[in-house]
Design a protein around this nucleic acid. Sequence first.
RNA 1: GCCCCCGUAGCUCAGUUGGAUAGAGCAGCAGUUUCCUAAACUGUUGGCCGCACGUUCAAAUCGUGUCGGGGGCACCA
Length: 576
Amino acid sequence: MLIVKEALSNILYNALTEAKKKGELKIKDEPLIVLEIPKDETKGDVATTVAMALAASEKKKPRDIAEIIVKHIKDEAGIIDKIDIAGPGFINFLLKNEYYHQILKQIDKEGKDYGSVDIGKGEKVQVEFVSANPTGPLHVGHGRGAAVGDALSNLLAAAGYDVTREFYINDAGRQVRLLAESSYCSCMGKPIPADGYHGAYIDEIAASAKTVISDIKKRIYAGPIDDKGAAAASQAISLNFPNVSFEESEAFFAWHSKKCLLEEIRKDLEDFGVRFDNWFSEQSLLNDSSVKKSIEELKERGFAYEKDDALWLRSTAFGDDKDRVVIKKDGSYTYLATDIAYHRNKLSRGFKSLINIWGADHHGYIPRVQAVIQAFGHPKDTLHVLLVQLVAVLRQGKPVPMSKRAGDFVTLREVVQEVGSDAARFFFLMRRSDSHLDFDLELAKKQSSENPVYYVQYAHARLCSVERQAEERGIKIPDADSVDFGLLKLPEERNMMKQLALYPITIEGAARALEPHRITFYLQNLAGLLHNYYFHHRIIIDDKPLTDARLVLMKGVRQVIKNALGILGISAPEKM
RNA sequence: GCCCCCGUAGCUCAGUUGGAUAGAGCAGCAGUUUCCUAAACUGUUGGCCGCACGUUCAAAUCGUGUCGGGGGCACCA
């Protein structure tokens, strides 16, 4: 279909040029040739709106212009079956069936690569997502961010970008100190401060802290020890349980708690099928003084200044409402300071495009980070921020109460355990990321057509079953080159082929718009066509040539379902 | 008070970046299997696209205003 679009716009371009030469059309500025796929199938396969677009400048009726254009169309490639003019001035093209047969051959040849396009041209893109504080387990909201970020990364990779997935670890500052203090208190049997972290996981961390200390003392500790760990471990050796103050043991508890939670986060994500290329520590930006250097650079560039004993970023120069503090009066950094260093670091790694996936509550932060990008001399649209709205978990149609403060929220782990990773992912990707999502646990578990996950997966399983049946009857699944597709005469068959041809276009559109949810809609449509066809027609019949053609068509549908599910990070089961 | 997002069928949401008669799922109602998996299929009910102006050949889509819902406006992270 991509090729067809190109071919058609050439044909139209030539027709316009010809009409101009003959003096039938003036054509002052070259019109943009817009091609679209009509939602109403009876209108044709592809339509163009050029005639209407030209109406104003030509001072002619759109339909008359369309007549002139059509008169000059020369279909040298022989892809057009029928052309007609309809409505206010649409030119509709019906493509030859051979074109769709060609698609089936292409799918057969390309297999898992069918649908890949090259709009990215190998450009380096970074997608940063989840980036949770290592101060507690991941909750459903993080799960949605993870599903969106991962699917988007897959999508961009399929669209020809060189994608790097990164998790930014917010491991600096107050919250880590609080975490350390919370686990210290739990370990010592002291009450956890009110603004600290509560919940059972803190007690687990405290319990394991005791074991680690004793293991280190006995020199039998087997866990990993990095630079920070070594310092913490040596401190642990000197700890004198239970008579030790938080000040004396903070380094140890910070290191240990952080390590435990990061491991847990990593595991939660892995079980959810999400892996990162890079885990980037916020603290490292402070340790290697890149925060300091970044701020120096901003000063040199004239976008940072001192006022009221504080250092400010001149973000208003780039459209922010007000300038923002980077170094506070007391000399400490704000969160923005490390973000400045982090984004400078990202830019220095040569990414052409940065995509940050944030919770919607951070949207007020976008202008200042975009200001940072520009202050370093990069165009504003280098950075794309995708906002992910909150998830409301429903049980029996009623929202499950969540309060972060009380440490009482539905974790990603719980949801994945209850409904499975596939269903969870599909649900997270069913809506545009910036709209609210109701996650119905009962629905996600339901094994019926009400549940879109199973509806789509079942389509794949059904087709696998057909292939198994065919093999049992001694029918080999034929090659696309060896069958007569002309036998596929049913409108349902043509519709399916058309839908398959649409897949690369869907990928391209979704990638350009950074909207992975479009793939879930595409899949539901394709699965719908398949189930309908399957119910009404038999694939394996006495007519061998027709059976062969149908088997190749089914193979194509199965392949595309599998490819699309792959982008969403959802499995394509062979049996259900 | 200022800024951002949302407002489309009873419910949950799509709507190909401005196109033709606005779609799907669920719920409701009525049906379908001697046959490759019924985790499936068919039919049917349901709409001032929040409201009002404007931009143009054409607006659910763009602009202004307005109402309703959510969120953000820290020398917090």
